Amino acid sequence: MKLLLVTDAWKPQVNGVVRSYLNTIPELEKMGMKVEIIHPELFKLRFALPSYNEIKVVITRKKTLKNMMDQINPDRIHIATEGPLGYLARKICLTEKKGFSTSFHTRFPEYIQQRTKIPASFFYFFIKHFHNKAKKVLVPTPSMQAELIKMKFKNTVVWSRGVNHEKFGHYQKLDLGPGPIFSYIGRVASEKNIQAFLDLDLDGTKVVVGDGPQLNKLKKKYTDVKFVGYQFGQDLVNYYASSDVMVFPSKTDTFGNVVTEANATGTPVAAYDVTGPKDIIVNGINGYIGDDLKENVMNCLNIDRKKCQEYTKKFNWYECSKVFYDNIIS
């Protein structure tokens, strides 16, 4: 069986959407599914999204994309994103009366609201319209599914995320400064609410691993914080493992891949009681969630790292890829 994945998010972007598919595709191929991908890097005419320079927006004609899709001649079509490629692929599928599935990955309406003050509900009208023609809409967590159902999204099914336990189970501890070590790992952007972490009065060392549009601003404001930029491969694993607590202050993520990655090294995670973290974190086991972020951070210092690591083994890429496979072929 041949699957066509159409996505506006792909390498070299560094985000949860790209990471999810990079880990899912090899598992699908083991199950006998051939995966072809149409992504922005295949197109010459593209421009950077304002405030997201690494995200490229494609400009192309419907005929061009249709020819690419026809050449691939897939058995199934999955549209990963609500961007220009996603919308155009959806339009082609509807015109050609071809079934397709979609995924809801990102709370773009909330991101836009933060920047423009236009209510998120206005944009959810269009997002819902995009997804409601799909045979299946894959969403990352039960709490996110519940929110979307309240907004009248149809055909939703939970497709969780995994973690590579082999990769994140081997590491070397780094000397990052006086302990405890408190880290934030992820994109450095306003929607991630990083300042809620950086403003906490904590004894020890704060480390920010990642890059993004807010990086220079935060570097200037928080001169006592170590900003180390994006880290990859074993270096990234070592930063996770060298943290006593990873702080995840976002209130807009739909899952939070970094939470399970941190846990896979034994590092507990402090977060708010919101969609994403509340589906992953069990207080006292692999982290703490609640309204008081500092209290959650301090409580995490008492967590047994071995138990944290063991609990996270329930998140694996084979199981969630099987859910993806079963819903794509149904």
Score class of each variant (00 low, 15 high):
148 L>P: 06
286 N>W: 02
178 P>G: 05
309 Q>S: 14
286 N>A: 04
213 P>Q: 11
245 V>M: 05
305 R>L: 05
22 L>K: 13
154 K>Y: 08
93 C>H: 06
85 L>E: 07
322 K>V: 15
14 V>Q: 09
136 K>T: 14
248 F>E: 06
267 T>Q: 01
241 A>L: 08
155 N>E: 14
20 S>A: 15
287 G>E: 03
247 V>G: 09
326 D>G: 03
12 P>E: 12
230 Y>K: 14
117 K>C: 12
292 D>T: 02
86 G>P: 07
311 Y>P: 03
283 N>K: 05
158 V>T: 14
317 W>L: 13
69 M>D: 08
50 P>H: 12
296 N>M: 08
328 I>Y: 05
183 S>H: 07
10 W>S: 11
210 G>K: 07
80 A>H: 13
112 I>L: 11
49 L>G: 04
102 T>I: 11
313 K>A: 10
213 P>M: 03
153 F>I: 02
12 P>A: 13
179 G>A: 13
56 K>V: 03
145 Q>G: 06
186 G>P: 10
213 P>W: 03
286 N>F: 04
164 N>D: 15
66 K>E: 15
206 K>W: 11
243 S>P: 04
292 D>Y: 00
253 D>P: 04
296 N>W: 01
147 E>I: 13
154 K>E: 10
192 K>D: 11
313 K>S: 12
262 A>P: 07
22 L>A: 11
308 C>F: 02
270 A>G: 01
254 T>G: 06
201 D>W: 00
130 F>C: 10
272 Y>S: 01
295 E>G: 10
215 L>K: 14
55 I>W: 05
24 T>D: 09
213 P>N: 10
26 P>R: 11
24 T>F: 09
67 N>L: 11
91 K>Y: 07
277 P>T: 02
210 G>Y: 07
251 K>Y: 00
233 G>V: 10
